[in-house]
Design a protein around this nucleic acid. Structure first.
Length: 604
RNA sequence: GCCCAUAUGGCUCAGGGGUAGAGCACUUCCUUGGUAAGGAAGAGGUCGUGAGUUCAAGUCUCACUAUGGGCUCCA
């Protein structure tokens, strides 16, 4: 048996550890390295090692589950003591000590009845057992420490040298928010020290891209404790960036046949009762009373758009009818979930509602998915699509839900668009496709969404006259491309590490005049650029030239332009180009043409 | 909402019971410089808010607010 053998892979893709495989296993060996399967075993065993260390340090600790996850592993457990971030070092130290004891990891099997008896005093293990259907369960043992576990595990602790405990957190038992909260410790492990180090370095790099850090540095947005949590303020630089994004999207919508509309911020509660928001989404709504009449601040824009649709008679010839609005919505998110611009309580959706016939659904969905793809490509985002099905709190018949869900799946499948299923994740009025992109730390965030809704048009009695001269309820497709400007700009910031493409950059050009006599020319150029919707600044502070160039270069600006005698005399500019990472000279005309042309990159 | 942690000038942070510190940014002056930090002086904080312990509280305790990492939930 090889020194580095830690398990086998059978032809079904299941991992068999060496404890289970026996002497003469013919399955494919898994060597000790950084392959996915090897890491799965290593990390699982490291979770156990951590549990063993915790048990020695906190003898009263009881353990729940310790699985491998995308970012490493964790173990959930109950202790009387409070475990803090500082304690992780102590636990790590104990883990290293245990490795030195050279324990082997041994496995034995017992019947479920025996297990129930063995763990009779451990309610957490009994909870785990209650979820296991098998009649036989396995126990893994290393030194004095034993744990109920199905494996797989490495043969001995010596394979677990390269790990790091990353954070402590609370986690509900079984993910149920009504249940007890356990302590969870996350960690990561690799087969070699260098990979671990590289992983930690990657996390450090990701932190530098954090939109909250860059947003503060670049003065894009802010929050204010006295104003309230989750309520973002857009500072001038951030507002410029956002305006540019809005302008690009306005044009993109008009070119695709969308009409702008706008509904009020608050509507009488009766309307939210009719829609079902009051019953299904009420916990998230802000309510207010005016003249003894209750109003709800809108958490979504659909209700307003339906009223606009209903205002004038509609024919099948008008469909599909596309209304869009940069709709400001307020949602009372739980305080603990707020997260920079990625999760706020007031945000603006690039929202649209497409009224169409049932026959048009497929086409409309595809059109939207294509729109999404165009926008994502513009920024170079990878995204995944999830089809979310009927949630527990929902309105409408199952049959209608099925029809809508099948329509979504069919549209995607017929065009070979890959998707996964999010069971029960739909909106209360219909199933949806969620478009998810990842932030700097690899966390997925929902951005775009396409939702098929048979329910709200009926509830509000929205109608069109069909070819048959009868009245019909239209189908409503709710959709957003960016999702919200707040979240999307947060992700953009992390994606570009603040170095936004020219067409979005809040400051697109910085002029550095060499001395006072060159300021006039710089100001003239700045004005010329503004006429083309390009934002520029002139750095004429009383600092040395080198200092001003350094400051300008650190602003994450696409172009720094130096203006001296030579440039003024010849009507030229001396450019430091961020993208090309080089310096060159252009005439003023060439410069203007270059920049206005580059602005076109943002046209979609 | 729940668990744990954190909160000191605009920003990043030090100070851990005895009358508030640094760097950057800011203001003024000198310097007018051709491609990544020239020099000098100055201003700016009731140490998140409110209680409590103490002769004495940024510093210890509690509550609240906000923020961070998670859980749960979502654009």
């Amino acid at each position: 048996m090889s020194e580095n053998l830690i398990g086998y892979l059978d032809d079904q893709g299941n991992i068999i550890d060496t404890q289970s495989a026996g002497e003469n296993c013919s399955a494919t060996p898994i060597e000790y390295d950084n392959s996915d399967k090897a890491l799965e075993i290593i990390r699982h065993s490291t979770a156990h090692l951590m549990a063993q260390a915790i048990k020695e340090l906190y003898p009263d600790a009881q353990f729940f589950v310790g699985p491998v996850v995308d970012e490493g592993f964790y173990y959930d457990f109950r202790v009387n003591e409070k475990i803090r971030e500082d304690d992780l070092k102590t636990i790590e130290k104990k883990m290293k000590e245990l490795i030195k004891k050279k324990y082997k990891i041994e496995k034995y099997e017992i019947s479920k009845a025996e297990a129930l008896e063995k763990f009779a005093n451990d309610d957490l293990k009994l909870a785990v057992l209650s979820r296991i259907p098998d009649e036989t369960v396995s126990i893994y043992k290393q030194g004095e420490f034993e744990d109920l576990c199905r494996g797989p595990h490495v043969p001995a602790l010596r394979f677990l040298n390269n790990f790091k405990l990353t954070r402590v957190a609370g986690a509900y038992l079984g993910g149920d928010e009504n249940a007890e909260m356990l302590t969870r410790i996350y960690g990561i492990a690799f087969a070699d020290k260098a990979s671990l180090k590289a992983h930690m370095a990657m996390l450090e790099e990701a932190k530098k891209r954090d939109h909250r850090k860059i947003g503060t540095e670049m003065e894009l947005f802010m929050f204010n404790e006295e104003a309230g949590a989750g309520l973002p303020f857009w500072m001038p630089k951030g507002a410029r960036l956002r305006n540019k994004l809005e302008a690009i999207l306005h044009k993109a919508h008009r070119l695709r046949g969308y009409e702008p509309v706008r509904g009020p911020e608050i509507l009488k509660s009766q309307m939210w009762h009719t829609s079902g928001h009051y019953a299904c989404y009420g916990e998230n709504m802000y309510l207010t009373e005016i003249d003894e009449q209750e109003y709800g601040i809108k958490p979504m824009n659909c209700i307003g758009h339906i009223q606009i649709f209903k205002q004038t008679g509609k024919s099948y010839r008008d469909l599909p009818l596309k209304y869009y609005e940069y709709g400001v919505v307020h949602r009372h998110e739980k305080s603990g979930v707020l997260h920079g611009l990625l999760r706020v309580r007031e945000f603006t959706q690039d929202d649209a509602h497409i009224f169409c016939t049932p026959e048009q659904i497929k086409l409309v969905i595809l059109e939207v998915v294509e729109f999404v793809d165009t926008v994502m490509s513009l920024f170079g985002f990878n995204y995944t699509m999830e089809v979310a099905t009927k949630p527990e709190k929902a309105i409408g018949d199952d049959a209608v839900w099925e029809l809508a869900t099948d329509g979504i799946k069919a549209a995607l499948e017929e065009n070979n668009l890959p998707y996964t299923i999010d069971e029960g994740g739909g909106a209360f009025y219909g199933p949806k496709i969620d478009v998810k992109i990842t932030d700097a730390l690899g966390r997925k965030w929902q951005c775009g969404t396409v939702q098929v809704d048979f329910n709200l048009p009926e509830r509000f009695d929205a109608e069109y006259v069909g070819e048959d001269n009868e009245r019909h309820h239209p189908v409503m497709i709710h959709r957003a491309i960016l999702g919200s400007f707040e979240r999307f700009i947060a992700i953009l910031t992390e994606h570009y590490a603040g170095e936004f493409p020219f067409f979005l950059s809040p400051v697109q050009v910085i002029f550095v005049p060499i001395s006072d006599s060159h300021v006039i020319y710089a100001e003239q150029l700045k004005k010329l650029l503004l006429l083309e919707d390009i934002d520029a600044e002139v750095y004429d502070k009383n600092d040395s030239l080198n200092k001003r160039i350094r400051t300008a270069e650190k602003q994450r600006v696409p172009y720094v332009v130096i203006i001296g005698d030579e440039e003024v005399d010849n009507k030229t500019v001396a450019i430091r180009d961020r993208r090309a990472k080089e310096q060159y000279n252009l005439t003023q005309d060439e410069f203007m043409v270059k920049l206005t042309k580059q602005l076109q990159e943002g046209k979609i």
